[in-house]
């Protein structure tokens, strides 16, 4: 198992370096030097060249890339063009709130999707299964911003139960205390994730139900309940670990939309604002952080799976 984890980690490191290369290339392509942004559009070519020289933007590309890696490793993502702060500082301020929103949504989504998918598989081809499949299929086709709009239209404007703006508290603790205003943003994320997860769970559970060991468990005289809880649940839930890892990009994207619709102060809203300002250091730094999160998420998922699934442990 140690060799497996080593191998898997080595691959992850290679992928992270690849991600940095890709984003460095993108950065260089769309935004080779911040000189004009810092010095203003009227700066003389000499001033630009001098700026580039002092900040190293005239060095060979590989040298700039190494510098970029070095800075990234030290969590130095450069300065925001418009917000007068370092990107790292901005991330630090906003990360907690985003993590709270996404984390809570992810946990709730998994807690709903796993039993729902298993129940659908066990009662397959029943009215319940058809309804659940139909609904999740339908919701799966919704753009998340439209989910947000409809939630607001129904629960804020029509029923007047919940606010249409998320909590504006600055601390994570403040957000937790203002839970009511977080119901809609979290729900929007949960709805789209459940739609994807439960379909996957259903097919995973169906695959496992067709296996002989389920038949053997029944042949032992176990009740359907025991077959379900002792044998089916664990085996068919294992793949969801991988799926959660793989769905992180979607979660980050969903987070971006939800934060901008509900005006929630997090990394997504920061990114959205930066889009309007063409604030490339923030945009590419967040893309990089997102990608690294995804790689780490997948790595953690794979390692978790080796711990949870004895079949992989010995490889």
């Amino acid at each position: 198992m140690i060799t497996y984890i080593l191998r898997r980690t080595a691959t992850a490191v290679i992928v992270v370096i690849g991600v940095m290369l890709a984003i460095f290339a993108a950065l260089h392509l769309v935004y080779p030097s911040p000189a004009r942004a810092v010095l203003g559009l009227k700066a003389t070519p000499q001033a630009v060249a001098a700026f580039n020289h002092t900040h190293g933007y005239d060095r060979p590309l590989w040298h700039q890339f190494l510098t970029y890696i070095n800075q990234t490793v030290h969590l130095n993502f450069g300065e925001s063009l418009k917000q007068n702060q370092s990107v790292g500082q901005l991330f630090k301020e906003n990360a907690g709130r985003s993590a709270l929103l996404s984390g809570v949504a992810l946990v709730i989504a998994v807690l709903i999707a796993v039993p729902l998918g298993i129940a659908q598989a066990v009662k397959r081809n029943s009215i319940f299964d058809y309804t659940a499949t139909g609904v999740s299929f339908f919701l799966y086709s919704w753009p998340i911003f439209f989910v947000c709009l409809v939630l607001i239209a129904v629960f804020s404007l029509k029923l007047n139960w919940l606010p249409f703006e998320a909590s504006q508290a600055t601390s994570v603790f403040g957000v937790v205390r203002d839970a009511k205003s977080m119901i809609l943003p979290v729900s929007a994320l949960v709805i789209v994730s459940v739609a994807a997860f439960s379909r996957y769970m259903r097919s995973s559970a169906l695959d496992n139900l067709a296996q002989d060991y389920i038949k053997v468990a029944r042949a032992k005289g176990l009740s359907e309940r025991s077959v379900l809880f002792r044998h089916l649940t664990r085996n068919s839930s294992l793949p969801i670990i991988t799926l959660v890892g793989l769905s992180l990009p979607d979660l980050l994207a969903g987070n971006l939309i939800v934060e901008s619709v509900f005006n929630y102060q997090g990394l997504g809203l920061l990114f959205f604002t930066a889009l309007g300002n063409e604030d490339y250091p923030i945009l590419l730094a967040y893309t990089l952080v997102g990608a690294i999160l995804v790689v780490i998420g997948n790595l953690v998922a794979d390692i978790a799976l080796t711990l949870a699934d004895p079949r992989i442990r010995l490889i």
């Binding site: 991600v19 063409e278 893309t287």
Partner: peptide
């Protein structure tokens, strides 16, 4: 496949947005 891994790691919407802005 490592290139594909890199591509899958970068959240598609982010990179699409950055390029769409540019």
């Amino acid at each position: 496949m490592r290139i594909v891994d890199v591509g899958l790691a970068i959240p598609t919407l982010f990179i699409i947005l950055v390029l769409a802005v540019r």
